[in-house]
Write a protein that binds this DNA or RNA. Structure first.
Length: 383
RNA sequence: GGGGCCGUCGUUCAGCCUGGUUUAGGACGCCAGAUUGUCAAUCUGGAGGUCGCGGGUUCAAAUCCCGUCGGCCCCG
């Protein structure tokens, strides 16, 4: 993997970059769709390519449990196994240990836990996390980190940072493959000093890229942004920066403004499956009865194949009868929205109009809120 | 003419036999909320019915009895 920064915004830390892998070139800032178990739920690799994505995320924890990394390795690795020709990043499983696994016990040596599927006992160390990810064969793999649930007391955050640094050393030391990039993960809760310290620890280890972890776990967005401001300046400008698990469009803009190059989030796919559709003029909850006879597309200004072909009325019907096509079409639309959103961010940076793009986004958002409160006023007003 | 079945939130059903643990419950629909390195095509909450109508029995009736209206079926 190779990364280059082509242009930097004047007013903010936003930057335009290029991530080159053997499975394609990714223009950054970029958004990665999440395919936990292989596919992005509801769609196939061909759809993903058509939508313009060149990099997606798979999850090592889930694939380790099912079907098992050895099977995937024997089947030629993730790319061949899943039929996805683009680049892949695997998450190490640190987050899943903390969010999913039962009876999780963490020591400096590693994590012992019970599978969320069958209760079977497992023990994962930084070394095995790397071994699993090398077997899976993604283009980019992630260090094994400890993610702490927030709010947390200072002691446990400090401990998680210490352990994450310790494990980062072991991850680097246990690598066998040189054709994969390895990213370190910054922790530190909502403590700016710990964030900076965590970042400095990792930078010494010269990772191929750096991720900001432990965020988007329920904290206020202002805290998230504050943590980015404390972290990013500590990271080398020449390496890609990845904000894990984020997020909503607003989070993407603010992340980019603070120097983030990569994002991943389940929001476009999961929300698609549950009927929340993103549009340039706010969200459309397609299950609402108001769309029963709505002949217009989800978003008249959208260029996706769903908006070109289907009405809100039809999508409302598909959703309500639980037709599986509903998930597919809604996911395709939402992913298009995110892909387009990132294209516009990149274009804005290239044209040195990122600040204007950001302002326009918030103006639009205020307008939506104004419309909503306007309706409420109308309803509440005496006749 | 004779006999039988059924009428319960928008829809569809349960409860009725053995009256009180029912402020009448479920499912679907409706409305709202949640969802950020995906156990999730998911989860949570809310509104909505004086149980066709009238009378009777009883301390107490969706529930038992009589009448009546509406729908359906069978036999002549």
């Amino acid at each position: 993997m190779n990364f280059s920064v082509d242009q930097t915004d004047r007013g903010t830390c936003a930057r335009l970059g290029r991530l080159t892998t053997v499975h394609g070139v990714i223009e950054t800032p970029a958004f990665m769709p999440v395919g936990t178990l292989g596919p992005v739920k509801g769609i196939d690799p061909h759809d993903l390519e058509q939508l313009g994505f060149r990099l997606m995320l798979n999850n090592a924890y889930h694939l380790y449990l099912r079907p098992g990394h050895k099977i995937i390795s024997d089947m030629g690795g993730l790319h061949r196994f899943t039929g996805w020709p683009g680049a892949i990043l695997t998450d190490s499983g640190g987050f899943q240990m903390f969010s999913l696994a039962k009876l999780c016990r963490i020591t400096d040596d590693g994590v012992s836990f019970q599978s969320h599927i069958d209760g079977s006992a497992h023990f994962i160390t930084p070394e095995t996390a790397i071994e699993v990810q090398e077997a899976l064969g993604a283009d980019i793999i992630m260090a094994f980190d400890q993610c702490v649930a927030l709010p947390a007391d200072p002691g446990s955050i400090r401990d998680a940072v210490r352990r994450t640094s310790l494990w980062a050393v072991r991850c680097q030391a246990s690598r066998r493959r040189s054709d994969q990039a390895l990213f370190g993960i910054v922790q530190g809760g909502l403590d700016t000093d710990l964030r900076a310290a965590s970042a400095r620890d990792l930078v010494k280890l010269q990772f191929d890229g750096y991720a900001v972890g432990g965020l988007s776990v329920g904290e206020h967005k202002a805290d998230m942004y504050r943590m980015l401001e404390a972290t990013v300046p500590e990271l080398p400008p020449s390496k890609p920066r990845y904000l894990m698990g984020v997020g909503m469009p607003e989070n993407l803009i603010e992340g980019v403004a603070r120097g983030i190059d990569l994002f991943d989030c389940v929001v476009p796919s999961r929300h698609g499956r549950t009927g929340w559709l993103f549009t340039t003029s706010g969200r459309v909850l397609i299950k609402q009865a108001r769309y029963q006879r709505d002949e217009s597309p989800i978003d008249p200004s959208c260029g996706c194949m769903v908006c070109a072909r289907y009405s809100r009325a039809y999508l409302h019907h598909l959703y309500n009868v639980k037709e599986m096509l509903a998930s597919r079409l809604n996911t395709i639309h939402n992913l298009w929205y995110f892909a387009e959103f990132m294209r516009r961010i990149r274009l804005a940076i290239a044209e040195e109009s990122f600040a204007a793009f950001r302002e326009a986004f918030y103006r639009q958002q205020r307008q939506e809120q104004g419309e909503i409160s306007g309706v409420e006023t109308e309803r509440g007003a005496p006749a």
